[in-house]
Nucleic acid binder design. Structure first.
Lengths: 193, 193
DNA sequence: AACAAAACTTGTCATAGGGCAAGAAAAGCT
DNA sequence: AGCTTTTCTTGCCCTATGACAAGTTTTGTT
């Protein structure tokens, strides 16, 4: 199984002709990251994005008090991108870091632009992917207001169990908007039930 | 000053040729909403979006406990759109309601698609607009975790003072992730300072 | 194995914000 | 103007979560 095979799962025959799919895939370059490597650091302007073939990745921001707040997790098949920095050509506020060794497929901005303007199915998919990210973020954001921390944790465990395996309690906690101490107590409560 | 003049502020000479701009603008239809009219209701699939020429609009979702939670505000010059419902052709969870009488310019999905695939500057702008929405949402979401309610309120007042004029305390409170009672107390604290 | 470092748990106490209810003030209606 | 409804404020008490610190367990390193 070559790397090319992996990307055919992303640019599927359902949406892309064989020629389109091959053209798109030929533009990607394989990049490997070791545990704790940064794909992107605060202050950089993002010039690439990646699809994750294997591994696990976390993004975070540093808030005004210097706290590390997890903003997202990326697993196999996910696109890893700072939408804002990539498209607006801005320095980012995010840090994106490999939580374990990762194999990724990288595309740069200029090539993205060519494909985006040249291939209708590519831009339809790009738009859909962005809208899906928007949707996840909104769900998370509303959940932050509407739900108790315990519910948020239970849902996370149910919906993304691989996170619990790969990420430290502290980083999961900030994603849920609570401290590691509270999350530890929530876990205990659940196991006591 | 005709309505067309308003949209020339959106599709500017900077990014659009005269022909492109005129073509795009010609596809919009003026629609007026009265106070409390719904532009979109939970369960609908969004077939349009709008630009606000005058008025003020609020969007909200109903959470699992039946609480109304404000998700966004839209003012003059803003685009009013449920990105997810519009692009994924899904029934929405959002309600979008005029907070006062509004004059808007409407574009439907099929026309949008034609322009998006036909005009490069239109799709660049569309993408940028979506990315900007994503950025705002992310900022709001991180602020929810990192900042105290009082700070969030103070920043809202500073950055979007027109909201305070147009929206009831209760609806501002849910946007900030607190109850109307708490917001009332925060206001008092601030005025006591 | 032995040590160091990181991750996690637990205790004590503090606090931001919630729930509920009663008034006060403002806005809408006839 | 007078009445009704909605919005906003305030009081009382409560709960979820935070802050800090001391342990404990796990993981990583030599």
């Amino acid at each position: 199984m070559t790397g090319q095979h992996f990307l055919t799962n992303i640019f599927k025959a359902k949406d892309f002709s064989k020629e389109e799919s091959e053209l798109v895939i030929s533009k990607f370059r394989q990049v490997n990251f070791s545990k704790n490597d940064y794909l992107l650091k605060e202050g950089d302007t993002e010039g690439h994005y990646w699809f994750v073939e294997s591994g696990f990745i976390r993004s975070y921001v540093i808030d005004t008090l210097g706290n590390d707040i997890t903003t997202n997790f990326y697993a196999v098949g996910d696109i890893v991108i700072d939408w804002t920095s990539f498209f607006l050509r801005n320095p980012t506020r995010e840090n994106i870091q490999a939580s374990m060794d990762c194999k990724c497929w990288q595309l740069d901005f200029d090539t993205f632009q060519q494909l985006f303007h040249g291939i209708q199915s590519f831009r339809e998919q790009g738009r859909t992917t962005l809208v899906n990210s928007y949707f996840s973020l909104k769900k998370h954001s509303v959940s932050m207001i509407a739900d108790q921390a315990k519910e948020r944790y239970i849902r996370l465990v149910k919906e993304k169990p691989h996170i619990i395996q790969n990420i430290s309690l502290k980083h999961i906690a900030t994603y849920l908007g609570i401290t590691d101490t509270s999350l530890s107590r929530i876990r205990k409560e659940i196991s006591d039930e």
